[in-house]
């Protein structure tokens, strides 16, 4: 590979980049998707729309390092994603109930990663009273905020929100988005949703798969 001028490398290497990703569960299965490429610059909000069954959630898991791609590669600022340690790409799923230990209090759930700062908790609107409760005594919106704080506490570069507010009522969803979008500093966001009105509100651009 020939040498590139330093400026060109800087531009190319910025942010999260997926090149020609392909994935299938085993060599006998058909590909869920192939030749899927995307870029996500620092601070950008990218919407991802498309019918179910096209592998949107699988793509999220590839980017978050939960699964390894069968084809293609993923880089962050030009370097491959780390295989261990705190992952720079965090993923929030639709069901916070499945993402937390039901026997842990809010405080314990939060202390699982890096402990979030009080400033962060305040910005996401987490009430001190929630920290002493068990997941069953928290509403979906409250629990989703705890998951969000836990993911943000490790200062990820990219946060993937996979239908993260689909199970919330309109007010709880709008509260959560407002908190998230006004965070500063804020990671780049990849927003997976079936709701076009929501994507039009929150995303800088929308990609369809």
């Amino acid at each position: 590979m020939g040498a590139l001028p330093p400026a060109a490398i800087m531009v190319r290497a910025e942010g999260l980049r997926a090149d020609a990703l392909g994935f299938r569960w085993s060599p006998r299965d058909p590909f869920l998707f192939r030749c899927l490429s995307l870029t996500l610059a620092a601070g950008e909000v990218l919407g991802l729309a498309g019918p179910s069954g096209r592998g949107k959630t699988t793509l999220a898991r590839l980017l978050a390092g939960d699964l390894l791609p069968v084809e293609g590669r993923i880089t962050l600022d030009g370097a491959p994603l780390p295989r261990r340690g705190l992952h720079p790409v965090q993923w929030i799923a639709q069901t916070p109930e499945l993402a937390v230990n039901p026997r842990w209090t809010g405080a314990r759930i939060l202390s699982e990663g890096a402990a979030p700062s009080p400033v962060l908790l305040d910005a996401i609107g987490i009430q001190p009273a929630w920290l002493t409760r068990l997941p069953a005594d928290l509403s979906g919106g409250e629990l989703q905020r705890l998951c969000l704080a836990r993911a943000l506490a490790v200062a990820p570069r990219v946060l993937i929100l996979d239908e993260a507010t689909a199970m919330l009522d309109a007010i709880a969803a709008a509260q959560l988005w407002q908190a998230l979008l006004t965070l500063s500093p804020r990671p780049a966001l990849l927003v997976i949703s079936h709701d076009d009105a929501l994507l039009a509100r929150v995303a800088d651009r929308v990609m369809r798969v």
Partner: peptide, 13 residues
Amino acid sequence: LWQALPSQSFQPL
């Protein structure tokens, strides 16, 4: 509730 919809003002209460 209605106002908080993304298709409306998206303003949370």
